[in-house]
Simulated scan of single mutants.
Amino acid sequence: MSESIYLPEAASKAEKYQAILPQIEALISSETDLYANLANVTAVLKEAFGFFWVGFYLVKGEQLVLGPFQGPLACTRIAFGKGVCGTAWEEAKTQLVPDVEAFPGHIACSSASKSEIVVPGFREDKVWIVLDVDSDLLDDFDQDDVTYLEKLMKLLDNNL
């Protein structure tokens, strides 16, 4: 198992994603524990991009329950259809939010969060997990984040 990741210097966001995705795949392929893998994925994303908050919520019954994350304290449970995470679960699609204050029903786990992207993962065509990434900057996420974080979630869906 690797204890560090390779990040190309002066790389674009897309180039960073392209560099870390195969490393994440190699990292999770040799470990069978779900939480260990999710914890390492959050660490890689935090290290690569310096996100304010990055973590997973797992579907448990009618709620999303906090899983491994990197960043400040977080909301522990989120109801179906509530906030950005619950909406991603309900709609079964990525939510790209340039300004969380403009998102109806946003749940403010941290007042420092300004923009957010939430990407669902699927098993048997049902959402089983969501990846939540927050930034302390407005409009910090773009189509590169959507593209590569969706690829990451497909990788996790197929390997965890």
Rank of each mutant, 00 (worst) to 15 (best):
A10S: 09
E15C: 02
F49T: 06
A88Q: 05
V84L: 01
D33V: 08
V59F: 05
G50A: 04
K114T: 03
G61T: 08
V100D: 00
K46I: 00
A108S: 13
I107S: 14
V54H: 05
A39W: 12
L66R: 15
K93E: 05
E9H: 04
V54W: 05
A19H: 03
A92Q: 12
L38C: 12
F80K: 12
E91M: 08
D99Q: 02
K60W: 09
E15H: 04
S30M: 10
P98S: 00
A92P: 00
R77G: 00
K16Y: 08
S4H: 13
L21M: 09
G67E: 08
A26N: 14
G83Q: 01
A19W: 02
I5L: 08
E47Q: 15
P22A: 03
A43C: 09
S4E: 13
S113I: 04
A11S: 13
P68M: 12
P104L: 03
E3W: 06
L73N: 06
V41Q: 03
S30Y: 14
E91P: 00
K82P: 06
Y35D: 15
G81D: 04
G86F: 07
A39N: 14
A108R: 08
K93I: 00
A108L: 10
E31P: 09
G83L: 01
I20V: 11
V100E: 01
C109Q: 07
Q18H: 03
P98N: 00
W89V: 12
I78D: 11
G81L: 05
G71W: 13
K82T: 02
P8G: 12
Y6V: 04
D33N: 11
Q63P: 00
L7H: 09
G50T: 04
I28W: 09
P22I: 07
T76H: 14
E15K: 09
A43Q: 13
E25V: 06
T87S: 06
P22C: 02
A108I: 04
E31N: 15
A14G: 05
E15G: 02
W53T: 11
L45Y: 09
Q23L: 07
L38N: 11
P104E: 04
N40T: 06
L58V: 14
I20K: 07
E9W: 01
A39C: 04
P72I: 07
T94S: 11
A108K: 07
L7P: 09
A74K: 06
A88H: 03
A39Q: 14
S12V: 02
Y6D: 02
N40R: 14
S110D: 15
I107W: 11
Y17F: 15
L38A: 11
W89N: 10
G86T: 01
S110H: 14
A14L: 07
R77S: 06
L27W: 10
V100Y: 08
N40Y: 09
L64H: 15
F49H: 09
N37V: 01
S12K: 02
C85F: 08
I78G: 12
P22Y: 05
D99Y: 02
S110W: 13
E47I: 05
F80I: 06
G71E: 12
W53R: 10
T42N: 07
Q95H: 00
G55K: 11
I107C: 13
L27K: 15
C109M: 06
A36Q: 15
R77Y: 09
D99N: 12
